[in-house]
Computed example of a mutant assay.
Amino acid sequence: MPICVFDITPDGTALPPVADRPLGDGYRWWHFDLSDPDLPEFLADHVPDIPAAALTAPETRPRADMYGDGLILNLRGVNLNSDGPADRMVAVRIWVTRSMVVTVRMRRIFALNEIRERAEAGQAPTTPMGFVGALTAGLMGRVRDTVFDLAERIDALEDTMHDDAAPLPAELVEERRMAIRLRRYLGPQRDALMALLATDTAMMSQGQRARLREHTNLAKLAVEELEALIARMTAVQDHHTAQAALAQGRNGYVLSIVAAVFLPLGFLTGLFGVNVAGMPGVDVPWAFAALCAGLVILTATAIWVLRRMRWI
C-alpha cells in the first residue's frame, strides 16, 4: 500500500482518490516506500519501463531527464532522521506528468512530509511542477540550514588558530568529512537543478521557472560554501600542523644546545670517574675544587663558542 494517495484539484484541495474521478487540470500524487511489495505492480500498470526502473533503483544520483511527456527526477536532502548523520543524504525518486506525480523514498523525507501535511490541510501544490518546486524548496531550505550550521562550527574552529598552544580540534576531522560528503551529493544536485531549469517542458510556467531558478542559485551557493569550508578546514589543519612542527623543532633545537654544552662535561666527568690507579689529583686536597672550576670554565667556553657561531 502506498504511504499516501491524493487527488489534487486545481485549487490545492486534496481528496481521497476515486478511480473514475476526472482530474481535469488537477493531478494525482502517489507516494510509496521503496520496500512496498505493491510498488512493482503499480509501476507496471501506470509508469513506463524506464521511469519505473529509475523509481526502483537501489542507488541513485541526482538527475533531471525528460522521458516522453514526463519528467524523471532524482533529488537528495539532508538526513534529519535518527538513523544517521545529516551528511548521509536521503534520496527521493520522482516521476512527473501532467496528471500524475509518483514519489518513492527509502527513508523518511521531511520535505515530503511537509507537502503531505499541506495536502491534508487543503493547501497542496496546485500543479505537478508546483509540487516539484515545493519539494525542491523544502529540500534546499534544509540543505541551506545544514550548511550554514556547519559554517558556524567552522568559524569556532578557526578561532583556535589564534592560540598557538591549542591542540588540533578533535572534531575537525569529522566536520571536514561531513563537508566532503555533502559536497559529493550537492554538486550533482546543482547540476540536476540546472538541467531541470533548462528543460523545455510545457508543464513549467514562467513563475515556476523563476522560483526554480532561485532554488538552483541556492544549490550553487551551498556548493560554493562547502568548497570554501573544505578549504578553510584545510587551512586550520595546516596551521596546527605547522605549529606542531615549529614546537617540535624548537624542542629539538634546545635539546641539541644542551647536548652540545654537556657533551664535553660528560666526557670529563666520565673520565675522572674511572676507578683505576693513576688518576691525577687523588692525593691532592684541592683537586676536586680545581676540577669543578675547570668544568665551569669549559661550560662558559662552550657557550661562548656557540654564540660566536650564532647557534644560540
Rank of each mutant, 00 (worst) to 15 (best):
V276F: 12
E120M: 14
L186D: 00
A302W: 01
L218D: 10
A121W: 00
F6K: 01
D149P: 08
A242S: 09
D83T: 11
D33L: 12
S35V: 13
T269D: 03
T13S: 13
A192T: 00
P17K: 04
V305L: 15
P40Q: 07
A290C: 12
P16R: 15
R142F: 09
D200N: 15
T201W: 08
G207F: 03
F288I: 02
M100D: 11
E174T: 05
F288D: 05
W304G: 13
E117M: 10
V101A: 07
R105K: 03
G138S: 06
R190F: 05
R209N: 08
V18I: 15
T97M: 00
A137I: 06
P280V: 06
W95S: 05
A19V: 06
D49I: 11
T199A: 15
R213S: 08
L193V: 00
L150F: 02
E59A: 13
E171L: 14
P10E: 01
A198P: 07
A124C: 07
G68C: 07
D200V: 12
D20C: 02
N275L: 07
V90H: 06
A260M: 05
V78M: 12
W286H: 14
L112N: 00
V18T: 12
V236W: 01
G70A: 13
T299Q: 11
